[in-house]
């Protein structure tokens, strides 16, 4: 379906659509990012504050990096779903036009997936890199949490943690994009173009 002409590139990788989105929704996106950051901090503080001093100390010592990882993944889930909703819902008419011009459902489905997956994947890679540093920073806590010695067993646990997170983020991307892409590609162009 996708050739090498500049038009096809524009249709396939819609950086212009993202630019349009950023231009029209800049403050909304900024507010969302701030909301997510504040949310992460408040949740973590709330959990810590609700515990007694000893537990709080233990948590800070041992579990805080797990809380950060969970928060990061939750923020990522919200980010990828919100970005997808903003870009795709805004472009419903566009998919309707393409369907009326003869694009098949499967072509629209691939188009949506290809376009929507790029930014979440880039963000996911950045988060995973951040997580490597977090895991390295908290390596002592991993060591005490799982009661394992340094050496092969330690790096096996380290690796498992990393791949578990990568798999989790893949699932987040998949489940936040795949059903909606399927839904939008199966909408009748009549309803999209009429209303």
């Amino acid at each position: 379906m996708i050739g090498k002409s500049s038009l096809n590139k524009k249709l396939n990788i819609t950086w212009l659509a993202y630019r349009d989105l950023a231009r029209n929704n800049f403050w909304f996106i900024m507010k969302l990012v701030l909301f997510l950051l504040w949310g992460m901090i408040l949740i973590n503080l709330g959990i810590l504050y609700s515990l007694d001093i000893k537990l709080r100390y233990d948590i800070l010592e041992k579990w805080v990096f797990l809380l950060i990882l969970i928060s990061l993944n939750l923020a990522f889930l919200l980010f990828s779903y919100t970005l997808f909703s903003l870009t795709t819902k805004k472009r419903q008419d566009e998919f309707g036009i393409l369907r009326s011009l003869g694009a098949r459902r499967s072509e629209i489905f691939h188009l949506i997936l290809q376009e929507s997956v790029i930014i979440p994947v880039i963000v996911s890679i950045l988060i995973l890199v951040l997580e490597i540093f977090l895991l390295l920073y908290y390596r002592l806590e991993i060591h005490s949490l799982f009661n394992i010695e340094y050496g092969f067993a330690f790096f096996l646990t380290f690796g498992k943690f990393f791949f578990l997170n990568a798999a989790l983020q893949f699932l987040i991307i998949f489940f936040s994009l795949f059903p909606s892409a399927l839904y939008f590609s199966r909408l009748d162009p009549y309803y999209i173009l009429r209303y």
């Binding site: 379906m1 038009l7 393409l98 011009l101």
Partner: peptide, 17 residues
């Protein structure tokens, strides 16, 4: 009309598929 394509590009869209 697709808002992020020029007039010429919009017109060329039907033949992409």
């Amino acid at each position: 009309i697709i808002p992020h394509l020029t007039v010429l590009e919009n017109i060329m869209v039907p033949l992409v598929f």
